[in-house]
Simulated assay, not measured.
Amino acid sequence: MATLLHIDSALVPDESASASRAVTAAFAKSWLEQHPEGKIVYRDLAASPVPHINIAAVGAGADDPLRAELAAELAEADAVLIGAPMYNFTIASTLKAWLDQVIINGFNSGPDSKVTDTPFTIVASRGGSYAPGTPRESFEFVQNYLEKVLTGMLGITDIDFIVPELTLAHSVETMSELIPLAEASREKAHTDAAEKAKALAARFVA
């Protein structure tokens, strides 16, 4: 039985009002439909945030109870799904806190990492567009940061991004002309979530 570790970090609790939660929910639903015997371990970092790391936890490493629990969830996961909306050009502080707690040098970080082959799917939603060639391309610190920290600290080799963008087009008057593009991006994100989840689940079906 394969396990999907599903993490949400959007501040908005309702998936009908949160682009990242809606897409991660669609991904998880498709994954279970294809792999009904699978298991999902879920963490909502907005509803139940983990504490920011302190010097005692750093010193304790994998002997710290919370860090050990989080690291065990990661180690036992066959795949990881993260909802990572953009706030002020980067990830939510709750997601950063989770990363700081779960990455333990000498335990799952470094040359002997046991999670290098774990596939990560990240839903990186954002209110505007930060795609290559756009005026704000250089302000994109969600995909860039997560790719660097996951590859550089955990040695992850399989990272896939789903990027619903222009999510503020419906609520910001000056972006109203971008609504068709926002709708197209939303539709593509949901399609990608269903298809990528299906493909991922197929890896674990005997």
Rank of each mutant, 00 (worst) to 15 (best):
H190F: 14
E183D: 15
E183S: 08
E183W: 12
L181A: 07
D192G: 04
K198H: 10
K198I: 13
S185L: 05
T174A: 03
T191I: 13
V172I: 10
I179E: 00
E183V: 04
A199Q: 06
E173I: 05
K188Y: 13
L181T: 02
A193C: 08
H190Q: 15
D192F: 03
E173M: 06
A197G: 04
K198T: 15
S185T: 10
E195G: 09
T191C: 09
L200R: 06
L178N: 02
A184V: 07
E177N: 13
R186N: 12
E183K: 06
E177V: 05
S176M: 06
S185F: 02
E173T: 09
A194N: 12
K188E: 12
E187V: 14
A199C: 05
H190A: 14
E187I: 15
D192N: 11
E183H: 07
H170G: 01
A194C: 08
M175V: 00
V172F: 00
E183M: 09
A182R: 01
S185P: 11
H190C: 10
A182C: 05
V172S: 00
A197H: 05
R186I: 06
A199T: 12
E195F: 09
K188L: 14
L178C: 01
E177I: 05
S171I: 15
A194H: 10
T174Q: 03
L178V: 00
E187C: 12
A199S: 06
A193I: 10
A193L: 13
A194P: 10
A199D: 03
M175N: 02
T191D: 12
E173D: 15
L200E: 04
M175T: 01
K198E: 14
A194F: 03
E173Q: 11
M175C: 00
T174I: 09
T174W: 00
I179Y: 00
S185D: 08
V172T: 04
I179Q: 02
L181H: 04
S171M: 13
S171W: 10
I179F: 01
L181W: 00
A194L: 11
A189K: 09
K196C: 06
L200T: 05
S176F: 08
S171F: 12
D192S: 09
H190W: 12
K188P: 05
S176P: 02
P180L: 02
P180I: 04
D192P: 04
E195C: 10
V172C: 02
H170S: 01
E187W: 08
A197F: 08
P180R: 03
I179D: 00
T174E: 04
V172Q: 02
K198C: 08
A193P: 05
L178W: 02
R186C: 07
A199F: 02
S176K: 06
K188Q: 15
M175P: 01
K196Q: 10
H170W: 04
H170Y: 08
E173C: 03
P180E: 05
S171D: 12
E173K: 09
A199N: 07
S176H: 13
A184S: 13
E195T: 11
L181R: 02
P180T: 06
S171G: 11
S176D: 03
A189H: 08
A199Y: 04
H190D: 08
E187Q: 14
L178E: 02
H170E: 03
S185V: 03
A189F: 05
A189G: 11
A184R: 14
L200S: 04
